[in-house]
Amino acid sequence: MYTILHNTRCSKSREAIKIMEESGKDFIIREYLKEYLTFEELKDILNILKIKAIDLVRVNEKIWKEEFMDKEFTNDEIIQIMIDNPKLIQRPIVLKNNDGVIGRPVENIQIFLNTK
C-alpha cells in the first residue's frame, strides 16, 4: 500500500493523486496540513528519502524567507520547524514500505511506481 502526503491546494499534489489513481495501485491519502506529522514520522520520512531536513524545506515560502532564511539550524531543528510550519514541507511525497520519492517533478512518481 502506498501513502501520499498531500496538500489539496497544491497543483503538483493533485497531479500526483491523478497519477496514483491512473496507476491502479492501492494508496491512501494523508493530508498532512490536517493530520499533522509527528517529529518521529518526519524523521523517518527523511531517512526513507535519504535526504537532509533542509532538502525537504520549501525555501521559497514566505515564512521561511521571513523567519528562517540565512540562519543556521541543526537537522533536528529544521525538522521541528517543519513540524511547527507544515506548509514548509515539500509535496507531494509518495511512500511505500521503506522507500519513497518527492513528486517534484511529478514524473518522479511514475518512475517510482514502475520500480516498486
Score class of each variant (00 low, 15 high):
residue 105 P to D: 12
residue 35 E to N: 15
residue 35 E to P: 00
residue 105 P to W: 12
residue 18 K to P: 02
residue 2 Y to K: 06
residue 94 V to D: 09
residue 22 E to C: 06
residue 8 T to G: 12
residue 92 P to H: 08
residue 81 I to V: 04
residue 66 E to C: 01
residue 5 L to S: 03
residue 103 G to P: 00
residue 41 E to I: 11
residue 53 A to V: 05
residue 84 D to C: 06
residue 25 K to W: 05
residue 16 A to G: 13
residue 112 F to N: 08
residue 12 K to I: 01
residue 19 I to E: 05
residue 52 K to I: 04
residue 24 G to F: 04
residue 33 L to Y: 05
residue 18 K to N: 12
residue 29 I to E: 13
residue 2 Y to R: 08
residue 53 A to R: 02
residue 82 M to W: 03
residue 1 M to H: 09
residue 102 I to P: 02
residue 87 K to W: 03
residue 40 E to W: 11
residue 8 T to K: 13
residue 67 E to V: 01
residue 98 N to R: 07
residue 47 N to A: 13
residue 90 Q to Y: 08
residue 28 I to E: 15
residue 17 I to P: 07
residue 42 L to G: 05
residue 35 E to G: 04
residue 6 H to K: 01
residue 44 D to I: 09
residue 63 I to M: 04
residue 34 K to V: 13
residue 13 S to N: 05
residue 114 N to I: 05
residue 115 T to Y: 10
residue 44 D to G: 07
residue 55 D to I: 02
residue 31 E to I: 03
residue 111 I to R: 14
residue 16 A to T: 01
residue 35 E to T: 13
residue 34 K to F: 10
residue 108 N to W: 05
residue 114 N to G: 14
residue 3 T to M: 10
residue 92 P to N: 11
residue 82 M to F: 06
residue 11 S to V: 12
residue 89 I to D: 04
residue 88 L to E: 01
residue 34 K to S: 14
residue 65 K to R: 15
residue 18 K to E: 15
residue 23 S to Q: 08
residue 30 R to K: 14
residue 59 V to C: 08
residue 27 F to S: 10
residue 71 K to R: 14
residue 25 K to V: 12
residue 94 V to N: 07
residue 47 N to T: 14
residue 108 N to F: 05
residue 33 L to N: 09
residue 99 D to V: 07
residue 92 P to A: 13
residue 18 K to G: 04
residue 105 P to I: 10
residue 53 A to H: 03
residue 64 W to L: 03
residue 9 R to A: 14
residue 46 L to M: 15
residue 106 V to A: 14
residue 104 R to G: 08
residue 1 M to W: 06
residue 90 Q to P: 05
residue 70 D to C: 03
residue 30 R to Y: 05
residue 78 I to P: 00
residue 75 N to F: 03
residue 113 L to Q: 06
residue 44 D to T: 13
residue 52 K to L: 11
